[in-house]
Structures are given as C-alpha cells and as structure tokens.
C-alpha cells in the first residue's frame, strides 16, 4: 500500500499547570510510606553505621570507615573495573541494540516477543548458562575438543573468571541487548517513517538519514534504556561475583567481601563503600536527568510565541 505520509497526530497532554488538590497527596502516602520506610530507613541505618553512630563495636562517631574505604588500595581499581564493565557492557548493548532494532523495525510482533524471552530468565540461570557454555570444561570447549580443533581444555581461551571479564560482559550483552532492543523497537515504531522519507527526498543518503533523523528521534529512548542498564550493571553483584575476575573485584563484590570479612571491624568500611556506591549511582542519575532535560527543553514551546 502507499506510504502514509501524514505526520503523527500530536497527543494532547493533560493540563499540568493545574495544581493537585492536597488530598491527592494523601492517596500516595501508602506507597511512598513503604518505599520511604524500607529504602530511606535502610539508608539512614547504613549511614549511621558507616559513621560509627551505631555498631557492633559500640558507638563512636568518626569518618574512619570512609577513610578506610577510600584508602583501601583495592578501592580505585574496583571502581575502575566497575565503571569499565558498566560502560563497555552498556555501550556495546546500546550500539548493538540500535542496530538490531533498526533491522527488526519492519518485522512483525514476533520481534518484540522474541526480545521478551530473556526478560523473565533470572541472572543466576544466565550465569549457569555462561559457565556451562564458556568455562574451560564447558560445552563449547568440549565440542571443539571432540572436533579435534583443540588438544586440551588448556587450549580454550579463558572466558569466565578471566582478567578481561569477558564472561561478565557476554552475560550482560545476552541479558541487556533484548531489553534495550525491546524499548528501541517501541520507540522506532512510534516514529513516522515519513520523516525519513522526507529526509531522503531532501537528498539524505541512508547514513545521513540515520545520523540526522532516526538517531536523534531515538535519543530519549536510548538514554533512558541505557541508563537503566548502566545503573543495574554498575551495582550488579552476582554476575561479577560468579563470572568476574578474582582480582581486581568490582565495587559491589568488594562491599560483599568487606561485609563478610572475618574482621567484624571491616563491616563499617563495607557500609561506607556501599554508601559511596549509592552516591556514585545517584550522580549518574543526576547526569542523566540533566541530559534528558536538555533534550526536553528543546521541545518546550516558548510562551506567547
């Protein structure tokens, strides 16, 4: 059928200028209360423990735990490793997902369905899968051995618990590519193809159309999905714990090790590390919000224009 060249109908947004009646806030109390109590309470407790206000070894307020956490020779290396894994896994998943979403753009509903298949699978199952497939005695290694392509499992490259954290990255790619693709497919399908057609008629080559029209229109979707993924990977514990390098360790693993250390005095340091991890995550969210608000500002109509 001919292309539908009409632009999308602008959705009417609710009138946000009208203030909520104060009673409306009461309705939010149960939800806000539970979240506030569990999350906020936990955070306050952690904060109090990290500064020594409460603790197993009596109360004496000091920043010793933070000092210990920050001067821990492993801290910087762990932070770097956590950022490396989060940046590389998020970056690769995002780039590959953009490509996959563009490829699947015209595919039917099956594409969205296929992207949802990995969503309910727990990370632990994925980790088990990576171990079964990629470990030196895993399926791939044994298959290559059976085919005579390698002489022993020593010839198979180390892909789990390796220094490059290949196994960790592969696991995150397996889990996050379908997730980001699912979001980007929805974004792409909401973009009127007539924009790209218009760009093409105005002289844009396929690459120029992607770079100047499609990608900017996907921007918000890419930013929000990649932030969710980055935040998750940065704070993820079980994947680097089970598949990651033994040294250096990621920040969450470092927190866990310190918390479960036989020296009970290190618990405050573990909590201080946890607080630092939370602050870093918060900073990332702020940076993201700033990026998104910049994008939104560009779409805000000027009053009286």
């Amino acid at each position: 059928m001919p292309l539908k060249l009409q632009p999308p109908r602008h959705q009417t947004s609710p009138n946000l200028a009208q203030p909520f009646p104060w009673q409306a806030y009461l309705l939010m109390l149960p939800a806000v209360g539970i979240v506030g109590l569990l999350f906020g309470g936990g955070l306050v407790l952690a904060l109090l423990q990290s500064v020594g206000a409460i603790g197993l070894l009596g109360s004496q307020i000091s920043l010793t735990a933070y000092q210990a956490a920050l001067t821990n020779p492993e801290f910087l290396r762990s932070l770097t490793l956590s950022l490396y894994i989060a940046v590389v896994a998020t970056g690769l998943s995002t780039v590959l997902s953009v490509g996959l979403a563009l490829l699947l753009r015209t595919a039917g509903r099956w594409a969205s369905f296929a992207c949802q298949i990995t969503l309910p699978i727990p990370h632990l199952v994925g980790i088990a899968g990576v171990l079964l497939l990629l470990s030196p005695s895993g399926f791939i290694s044994r298959s290559l051995y059976a085919l005579g392509l390698i002489q022993s499992d020593q010839d198979f490259p180390l892909l789990v618990n390796d220094a490059g954290n290949i196994g960790v990255l592969l696991h995150f790619l397996w889990k996050e590519i379908p997730f980001i693709t699912l979001i980007l497919l929805a974004v792409l399908r909401s973009i009127n193809p007539a924009y790209e057609m218009q760009a093409q008629i105005l002289g844009a080559t396929p690459w120029q159309r992607f770079w100047n029209v499609t990608l900017p229109m996907m921007r918000t979707g890419i930013l929000s999905s990649s932030l969710i993924v980055f935040g998750y990977i940065f704070a993820s514990f079980e994947v680097p714990f089970l598949l990651g390098s033994t040294r250096p360790r990621t920040l969450p693993v470092l927190v866990y090790r310190a918390f479960t250390d036989s020296d009970i005095a290190r618990r405050a340091e573990a909590i201080a590390l946890g607080i630092i991890l939370s602050i870093l995550s918060l900073l990332i969210i702020v940076a993201y919000s700033w990026l998104v608000s910049r994008g939104r500002q560009n779409r805000q109509p000027i009053k009286g224009a």
Binding site: L5, Y195, I201, L202
Partner: peptide, 17 residues
Amino acid sequence: ERRDIALVLQRGLLFPH
C-alpha cells in the same frame, strides 16, 4: 535522494528535533 525533486506534505512534516 538523487532525483532533485522536493516534496511538501500536508502538515509540513518538519523535523521536530
């Protein structure tokens, strides 16, 4: 893109970004 033809549609279809 190489036809040297321009097309104006019903609502202009300006690039919103």
